[in-house]
Write a protein that binds this DNA or RNA. Structure first.
Lengths: 196, 196
DNA sequence: GACACTATCTTTACAGTGTAAAGTTTGAGT
DNA sequence: ACTCAAACTTTACACTGTAAAGATAGTGTC
């Protein structure tokens, strides 16, 4: 037997359920995402997921963990592809942020939903992927001199700006959906002074 | 008979359902909000709401419409209470924005949820209250000279910033929840030049 | 004032959901 | 070869939204 298509025990059900969940999420949205539908799509009965996840909430957290993973990957990739000066690094990172939000609408809404956030502190996978995403943003903001007023640096402002823009763009399709350069950074980026 | 407690026909069921929905939303969250629970709380059977709303989605839209109403009220009130210079007017408006998001967490998430947004274009009440809220922000941003780059003025940037900050604060309780002045405006507000 | 009528709410029914418990199969270890 | 535990199925139940049909009240109209 290869690793695929193990006959009865299915073998790797856990990741299959997560992937099926993501698929359904993007095709049918959050409303159409049911435990039973996920199970059926994978080819098992509706009670099978219970042996891998404590409940639907736990499966959603696992899906969100995977979501944060590709989220962070996309940010990192876009940042690394950008010119090496701090301004463009930050801009690239944020374009990755927006790209993920635009291409995975329901998943983006899920990973930042307050439903899963309470359970998220328990799940180790989730904490790790989420923290990686946040640290990525922190690190890129750390390329600039921090504000004298905020000890935390600029990450809250930048994060708010890009997150709000991504959310509103998803909510109100009127805002130009394609042009990542339309991001309202022209007042802020020039105010950030690179370190050293 | 007074207007209250009409015996069998209940009289004003429609607004009662909306209010009960808001109450449950704030006490039990989105997950605990069911049509049947709303109906029971108001004192009618579970099928009664069907005669006033086309379905659960329609009731949610009505709840969101009411939500946008108090949202706009709160922004307007805070803006009017602020000093009359443009900077403080905008700051006041945004503090109202944040106050609403902090005090009505689930409702805030609902009115900006992508679930109801498709149905929202149909509902006239919703369009009106939502547009009022948006226009309020537009008008206050119009106190400043627009950016030469964006014909739309600054409302997208300001809106993104305050909306992102509100969302992230709800998501991650780590961000100081009380101090409205901690809003990351110190880089942006000085860049805005009042008109005339 | 009796009548029909319509809006409002109830009753009943049904498919879909998440979850729990018990039963069945499979694979691994001794 | 046998035991046993893990993986999955079967069955059952409470809860959800929705639809259809029945009961009740208030509103006209003659």
């Amino acid at each position: 037997m290869t690793s695929e298509n193990t006959p009865h025990h299915h073998g790797n059900l856990r990741p299959a359920l997560i992937q099926a969940g993501i698929d359904i999420l993007e095709t049918e949205g959050t409303k159409g995402l049911s435990l039973r539908k996920i199970a059926t799509r994978v080819g098992v009965t509706h009670a099978a997921p219970a042996h891998h996840f404590k409940g639907k909430a736990a499966l959603l957290v696992a899906i969100a963990a995977k979501g944060f993973q590709v989220f962070a990957d996309l940010m990192e990739k876009n940042r690394d592809a950008a010119p090496k000066d701090p301004q463009n690094q930050l801009l690239g990172l944020c374009q990755g942020y927006l790209q993920f939000a635009a291409e995975n609408e329901a998943l983006f809404e899920l990973i930042f939903s307050t439903d899963i956030k309470p359970h998220a502190n328990v799940d180790e996978d989730f904490r790790k992927s989420a923290n990686r995403a946040f640290r990525l943003l922190e690190d890129t903001c750390a390329l600039f001199e921090p504000s004298p007023k905020h000890s935390q640096g600029h990450e809250i402002m930048i994060w708010s700006l890009v997150h709000g823009y991504a959310s509103l763009r998803a909510y109100n399709k009127l805002i130009s959906p394609e042009d990542g350069a339309a991001m309202p950074f022209e007042l802020i980026l020039p105010q950030l002074t690179p370190k050293k």
